[in-house]
Amino acid sequence: MKTVMTNIKHHLTDALLMAYSAGTLPEAFNLTVAAHLSMCDDCRARQAAFDTVGGAMLESCKRVRMDQGSLEATMARIRAAPDAPTPCASTPKLPSGLPTPLFDYIGGDLDTVKWRPVGMGVKQAILPTSREATARLLFIPAGAAVPDHGHRGTELTLVLRGAFHDECDHFGPGDIEVANEDLHHTPIADIGEDCICLAATDAPLRFSGLIPRIAQPFLRI
């Protein structure tokens, strides 16, 4: 399976790409952005352009004098480091076609994900990131719906496999939905195939129905 997708319609916003470049996003968002960039060369190029802005910022940054003997200390660090780093220390391509940044967070490929049911056939796995935001994998069976919910903060939903639609649009593999607090939506997986998404939120979701609201504290959704 090819990882990079060519027919992506829903991309990251400039604000998110700039914040990813600046390094100010919470880890769960960084993960979701990195996963989308692995699938989308258009956004990868846009993100690299924001890195260029970072380069310009560095170039014009106020200089601070290095300590006496700093260069020699750095050369000593280089000499102390193990010889010739491996030419490509990158994560191997995952057989499932999952974006490689997910490998470290799952601790393997798709078949090692520890799913937990959240009702109506929907399953989730919370990934270990810093606590300022949450990243989760969502498994939505073909034709099923994630309970209607709104957000206090921002929610990013990246389609890894299958497709879903909600009140806004249709989202296929590689597409990312950026939802803010105004959006109340009910994502429904397409009939043809189960849908797997990576979702990041920086505030707890708000479910509209009574039962999901009672269940929320226990499920951490």
Binding site: P26, L31, A35, S38, C88, T100, S130
Partner: peptide, 15 residues
């Protein structure tokens, strides 16, 4: 920030 920094899949020129 004491966090990991997930990076996109590496794209590098081979030998």
């Amino acid at each position: 920030r004491k966090q990991r920094r997930p990076e996109p899949e590496d794209l590098t020129w081979g030998p």
